[in-house]
């Protein structure tokens, strides 16, 4: 695979009075999984539709391998996509669904059988897609996205409706696709789904990018200086605040402390004879990093409205 990429630059789009895309800008590089994360309505699906030439942006560009998607002759051999796993004719079999799609790209039956195999659907290829569970539809959607052996994949919420086994399969599958050098963009409104899957995340809210960072970098930033501990003493929080920390209290007696190191916390509490346990320097999850970032966005939004 060559080092092609998807480039989204300054996309702007309005639906009625609602600004769906507000300067959306990011890149999807080959050989890695880019998570595309944000609350529902943040503009993820719209961005994907614009990349695929389905929707038109009012301004800005979306290029795949340096050209607009709509100029591609056999687009599925460049970019495979899964927008909506439910978009099927229910009476058509899985195989026939892939067959018409293959024909549209000048591909034949052999390729259909190959992707059915890859997606683990060979056994149900003759069944009507209307009877498929959402998880199986997602697999069928993945098979469709892979038909043209594309160098890039755009998948909108592929984990939706999958059982735990399916999620594990999907993660491994996406990893192997990225490992083959493909550029993979995976959207999700649940950051946790992408932990251990994505290499890079683009976090969006209200039609624009809030953060565009490697997962490792994001975690390091979110983890910095957080220490948690358990205590039954009601004084503990006051003592630590007195020592210069800021403290969040949870109802189960867990304190999350910033501004002091674990060592400083232990000595401050020990000096007052306050009982505590389970002191640990905190490693943030991707979910928490995401919440921190989007909380800022929400506050910013609230301030903007009240102004």
């Amino acid at each position: 695979m060559t080092d092609k990429m998807i480039e989204v630059n300054g996309l702007r789009k309005r639906f009625g009075g609602h600004l769906a895309l507000d300067g959306m800008t990011f890149g999807v590089h080959s050989g890695r999984i880019t998570g595309f994360v944000g609350p529902n309505g943040a503009g993820k699906s719209t961005t994907m539709r614009v990349i695929l030439g389905l929707d038109r942006a009012e301004s800005g560009t979306a290029l795949v391998g340096g050209v607009p998607y709509r100029s591609l002759k056999r687009p599925l051999t460049h970019v495979g996509s899964l927008l909506d796993a439910g978009a099927l004719q229910p009476s058509r079999t899985a195989r026939d669904h892939l067959l018409w799609l293959a024909h549209s790209q000048g591909l034949g039956r052999n390729r259909v059988e190959e992707v059915l195999e890859q997606a683990g659907l060979s056994a149900v290829a003759r069944r009507r897609a209307g009877g498929f569970s959402l998880g199986m539809r997602q697999r069928l959607g993945i098979a469709a996205a892979l038909l043209g052996d594309p160098w890039a994949l755009l998948l909108d919420e592929p984990f939706n409706g999958m059982d735990p086994e399916g999620i594990v399969w999907m993660r491994g599958f996406l990893r192997s696709l990225a490992g083959q050098g493909r550029a993979v963009l995976v959207s999700s409104h649940l950051m946790g789904e992408l932990q251990g899957t994505a290499d890079h995340v683009v976090i969006v809210g209200r039609g624009r990018v809030i953060a565009d960072s490697s997962v490792a970098g994001l975690l390091a930033r979110a983890s910095s200086g957080l220490v948690s501990l358990r205590t039954s003493s009601p004084e503990a929080a006051a003592v630590l605040t007195g020592a210069g920390a800021s403290v969040r209290e949870a109802e189960d007696g867990t304190l999350t402390v910033t501004g002091l190191t674990a060592e400083q916390i232990v000595s401050a509490l020990s000096a007052r004879g306050i009982p505590f346990a389970e002191v640990s320097a905190h490693r943030a999850t991707l979910e928490q990093a995401y919440m921190d970032l989007t909380r800022d966005a929400v506050e910013f939004r609230a301030a903007e409205v009240s102004r």
């Binding site: 687009p75 599925l76 996509s81 909506d84 978009a87 099927l88 004719q89």
Partner: peptide, 18 residues
Amino acid sequence: GNEYSTGLIRLTLAATPR
């Protein structure tokens, strides 16, 4: 009609941008 009601039209038009 079937393609619009099921959303299949998007796949069709993504496959054939002309």
